[in-house]
Amino acid sequence: MRITEETVQYVAALAKLNVSEEEKNKVAKDLDRILDYIETMNGLDTEGVEPMSHVLPVKNVFREDEVSNQDNREELLKNAPQRIGDSFAVPKTVE
């Protein structure tokens, strides 16, 4: 099995998710099975193939350097779970 409980822990940390001790084993098994299946794509020879990240040949899409927006603070903060003054607030980030 490739996906160990440690891998689950690592990936969960990257995704900022908690996975409880009890869940870890089940999640590891699930992911392992899915990744095993995903690896079937190795059956296709892709030697020399350019990876395709964009499907259409669209390129050079630009905007001009112009200021078009106004102060929009109230709208921006409208959905904030915690607001102090005119800012979003989070638990302190420095000790």
């Binding site: 689950v8 690592y10 990936v11 990257l14 794509m41 190795n42 296709l44 892709t46």
Partner: peptide
């Protein structure tokens, strides 16, 4: 979690880049 895994260091080429080539 699958997404984080296939992009994580050491797995990018085998999974993500491979998938783009298959695509």
């Amino acid at each position: 979690m699958i997404g984080a895994f296939v992009l994580s260091s050491g797995y990018y080429d085998a999974f993500y880049n491979k998938a783009l080539k298959v695509r």
